[in-house]
Design a protein around this nucleic acid. Structure first.
Lengths: 95, 95
DNA sequence: TATTTTGGTTTATAATATAAACTAGTTTAC
DNA sequence: GTAAACTAGTTTATATTATAAACCAAAATA
């Protein structure tokens, strides 16, 4: 009756990150941190998990002399997000 | 930018339970257990939490000689569920 | 050149979900 | 009538997860 909600996406911060990344081609660590209003440590951990699952791509480079971490959603991530949303609708349908 | 998702509702089993209870006037423990396909232990714990928060009312009686636990959603629970769904839409909007 | 800030990572702790074990009573089979 | 299995749960223990705190290296600032 209720399909499983992808546990990787059913977590507030990771869902917010994915939601953001669905709307842009890429985003920087610091911007994601500010928009989701989370701590850097928490974000770092959650980005790792999304990355390990292949839902996002994380690229490390430099902006001038400072490190720069850039994230973008992958095809797999888009699919997972869309599946998640569809599953979720089972739970909240008719609202 | 992203409002907090009520952690009491942002958990698969509790959300499923609330989703069910939104659609009926009341439901029995065993029926909820079957429909959500969870273990009795897990359900017992989660019902306690929802009940402690005042989101559901739990009544214990007997059906013949067997114990019968009946649950129903409260006004507070309905409000919380609707707020949760609205918040969630921030995360999954435009899908 | 000492202090603070930036951009993170790693590690520790707190919270949560889940499963396993248990209880109390009931029905069924012998 | 009594042992075995089943019903309807609760309690406790464990595994997972989220989150926060502590840390690090380099850069900018005072």
């Amino acid at each position: 009756m209720f399909k499983e909600l992808d546990p990787l996406l059913h977590a507030q911060l990771r869902l917010a990150v994915m939601s953001l990344l669905m709307q842009v081609t890429s985003a920087e660590f610091t911007d994601i941190k500010e928009k989701t209003n989370c701590t850097a440590g928490n974000l770092s951990v959650q980005l790792d998990k999304l990355s390990a699952a292949g839902y996002i791509a994380v690229e490390k480079s430099f902006k001038g002399k400072k490190p720069l971490t850039t994230c973008s959603i992958t095809k797999k991530g888009i699919k997972a997000f869309e599946d998640y949303v569809n599953t979720l609708k089972q739970y909240i349908h008719n609202r």
